[in-house]
Structure formats: C-alpha cells, structure tokens
C-alpha cells in the first residue's frame, strides 16, 4: 500500500521534507509506518520514546481525524503528524 505522510513544525524540519509518500505492507499500523522511516536520529527522538512507543505529545491525524498509533492503514490513506508545544 501507499500512504502519504505530512509533517509540521520541528518534525518537518528534522524530516527535511514537508510531505512524502511511503510504501508499506497492507495493514501496517501508523506506528509501524513511522518507525520504518529513516530521517536520522533527531527525527526518531522527536517521535519515539526510548521504549519505542510513540511519544504521547504526538498527534496523528488520519484522513482528517485524530487517530491512534495502532490504527491499521489502507492504500491511499493520508497521515498528518503534529506535535503541539506547551504554552497558553
């Protein structure tokens, strides 16, 4: 399957791209797709804890609605990856 990933703010800067299309096995979870992406250690540290779990401050939006890392993706899905920062 092919899915489109769009990054925001510091995640975008560490990825070096605003958006990219990746290929993965049908049914791979959002977590699985992101874990397979290679954009360097700093990108990985932004997204993942040392345990490998997605950091709780990472917001995933799949096809327009907030979703979970365990969501299984399908061909053509779009995933936006955003990390709100403190302050208000």
């Amino acid at each position: 399957m092919t899915v489109t990933l769009t990054y925001f703010a510091q995640i975008r800067r560490k990825a070096g791209v605003e958006s990219e299309t990746v290929t993965a096995t049908d049914g791979t979870t959002v977590h699985g797709v992101l874990a397979a992406i290679q954009h360097g250690a700093e990108f990985g540290e932004l997204l993942f804890e040392k345990t490998g779990a997605l950091r709780p401050v990472i917001l995933l939006v799949v096809n327009g609605l907030p979703s979970t890392p365990e969501r299984m993706l399908r061909d053509g899905d779009s995933v936006q990856v955003f990390s709100p920062v403190a302050g208000g």
Binding site: V57, L59, P66, P84, V85, A86, G87, G88
Partner: peptide, 11 residues
C-alpha cells in the same frame, strides 16, 4: 498551557 492537554482535547 500543557502540550499533553492540547493533545488530549484534539484526540
């Protein structure tokens, strides 16, 4: 104010 609360309301 907190980032985790922002994520909570968005999720």
């Amino acid at each position: 104010d907190r980032a985790d609360q922002k994520v909570m309301i968005l999720q």
